[in-house]
Amino acid sequence: MVGVIAWVFTWWITEAVPLPVTSMCPLFLFPMFGIASADSVAHSYMDDVITLVLGSFILALAVERYNVHRRLALNVTLVFCGDPLNPTMLLLGLCATTFFVSMWLHNVAAAVMMMPVATGILHRLPPADEQPKLMNKFSRAVILTVVYATPIGGISTLTGTGFK
């Protein structure tokens, strides 16, 4: 086992082969040398929680690729912003949206997906040339809204938290 680990470590450090190939070496080397069964090694690679997190990241990347985050940002601003801009309602809308998304995705994946939504909302706001300090505080509040709403929404379902 020490020899296999040294071999994989050397390949990892030197990048003699691509890292995905290096990371899969124990999957076929451990059973070949009789260190562990193929089932136990494969189970270590694809645990239920790892699969859930991986699926959430893939879903978040698909959402970003097809610009769902832009549509979400536009709809949040349309629904929660009145004719005079109400920052409290905008933060509430972003918080509710992040809460809902985090219920169905893993917390980290939901935060990864909602950060472009938050920055998209900030880009849609009119420039605050006369009040840059106020806009800076509002920008921080928007980012903190995503950061705090993500774990709160995640604890409401098993999918969001990733626990078994």
Rank of each mutant, 00 (worst) to 15 (best):
A36Q: 10
A36E: 15
S37A: 09
S37P: 12
A38L: 14
D39V: 14
D39L: 15
S40A: 09
S40Y: 06
S40R: 12
H43F: 10
S44L: 09
S44I: 07
S44D: 15
S44K: 12
Y45V: 09
D47A: 04
D48R: 09
D48G: 05
D48Q: 06
D48Y: 04
V49R: 10
V49C: 04
I50M: 13
T51E: 11
L52N: 14
L54K: 07
G55D: 15
G55M: 10
F57K: 05
I58D: 10
I58P: 05
A62R: 08
E64V: 10
E64W: 06
E64N: 14
R65V: 11
V68I: 12
R70T: 03
R70N: 06
R70E: 01
R70A: 00
R71M: 01
R71V: 00
L72K: 05
A73M: 04
A73Q: 07
N75G: 04
N75C: 00
V76Y: 00
V76P: 00
T77E: 01
T77R: 00
L78Q: 07
V79Q: 12
F80W: 14
F80L: 03
C81R: 14
C81W: 02
C81V: 06
G82Q: 02
G82E: 08
D83H: 11
P84L: 00
P84K: 02
L85F: 13
N86I: 11
P87F: 15
P87I: 14
M89P: 01
M89D: 05
M89C: 03
L90A: 11
G93C: 01
G93F: 00
G93T: 02
L94F: 00
C95F: 13
C95L: 13
A96L: 14
T97M: 08
T97L: 04
T97Q: 03
T98S: 01
F99S: 10
F99V: 06
F100K: 01
V101K: 05
V101I: 13
V101E: 08
S102W: 13
S102E: 12
M103T: 07
M103S: 09
W104C: 03
W104M: 09
H106S: 01
H106N: 06
H106I: 02
H106G: 03
H106M: 02
N107D: 12
N107Y: 15
